[in-house]
């Protein structure tokens, strides 16, 4: 009964890949991250279902969708935190399962910032260079620390107390510290899982400003529940539901003139009734 519906969704996903059907989608020369036919099963349930996605060389991509749509799982799969997925993910044209220097190096290449700010119980400086080890750490200059903190829009607030314990910072500051920490290992892609959930508006603004800056040089993916934030961030937006990519467009287009029924439903009711997949 559900078969035609499913096929249609698949078709859209493929069409978006080729960017023929959606003229307003920004196009880039070079693909950074390509996800093909990604499946993830947890306890008999499909979390991600035949997902296809292409992230280009730079720019911000927002992912929206109801809770449990598999948004966070998608980020964890791309980053390599979750390993039990099936399908293909390639980064810079190299399959991530066969990353040259192993999964750890892949995670260094793709920064992931979690929903809850998690700082390590040490000084602010040590937190920034936490991911750098051995030789890299010794070579880490104060310039690098300053650069990372500035990129994360935190430098002005902490430049006079870099040796303080990072746990004394406010939650918003801690989250920006996490961004700085991820930047210090020089990732080529940045993934953020609801970076501003449960933060005050001021921190939200600062983080958004920082993301705008970062998006000029690398692909930045932001999972968010805040539709206004999607508008402010610009770039592209994806709508996900039940582990499937439903719609993909430039963010204002997606917000103002959603093409798909599910997307419209979600904007109106904050829920979506994707039929359960028969597997």
């Amino acid at each position: 009964m559900n078969k035609p519906y499913t096929n249609m969704q698949l078709a859209t996903a493929h069409v978006t890949d080729k960017t023929t059907d959606q003229p307003k989608l920004k196009t880039y020369d070079k693909a950074r991250v390509e996800v093909n036919n990604l499946n993830l099963k947890r306890g008999g349930r499909l979390i991600l279902n035949k997902l296809n996605l292409t992230l280009a060389d730079n720019g911000i991509t927002s992912i929206i969708g109801p809770s449990g749509a598999g948004k966070s799982s998608l980020l964890r799969c791309i980053n390599g935190l979750d390993k039990d997925w099936k399908g293909e993910i390639s980064v810079d044209g190299i399959a991530s399962k066969h990353w040259p220097k192993g999964a750890d190096a892949l995670r260094q290449h793709i920064g992931l910032i979690g929903q809850k700010p998690t700082v390590f119980p040490c000084s602010i400086t040590d937190n920034v260079v936490f991911g750098l080890r051995g030789k890299q750490r010794k070579q880490a200059s104060s310039g690098l620390i300053e650069y990372c903190l500035k990129q994360a829009a935190l430098w002005d607030e902490v430049c006079d107390r870099l040796d303080h314990n990072a746990q004394t910072l406010s939650l918003g500051q801690q989250q920006r510290l996490c961004i700085a920490r991820a930047l210090a290992v020089k990732p080529a892609v940045l993934l953020l899982d609801e970076p501003t959930a449960s933060l005050d508006p001021r921190s939200k603004n600062k983080i958004e400003a920082s993301l705008h800056g970062l998006g000029e040089n690398m692909p930045v993916v932001v999972v968010t529940h805040d539709l206004e934030q999607v508008r402010r961030l610009g770039g592209n937006a994806l709508f996900m539901c039940d582990g499937m990519l439903i719609e993909q467009a430039e963010s204002t287009t997606l917000l103002d003139t959603p093409q798909r029924l599910e997307t419209r439903e979600f904007f109106q009711w904050s829920t979506c009734d994707c039929p359960p997949e028969d597997e």
């Binding site: 980053n79 935190l81 979690g114 936490f130 991911g131 290992v185």
Partner: peptide, 26 residues
Amino acid sequence: IPTALTDSARSLGMSAGQIIWHVWRP
């Protein structure tokens, strides 16, 4: 030890040995 701590160390690309020494040991 909170999993969030371990996860964020892993997402920085730290190896298992580094996580054991720098995150779990303290």
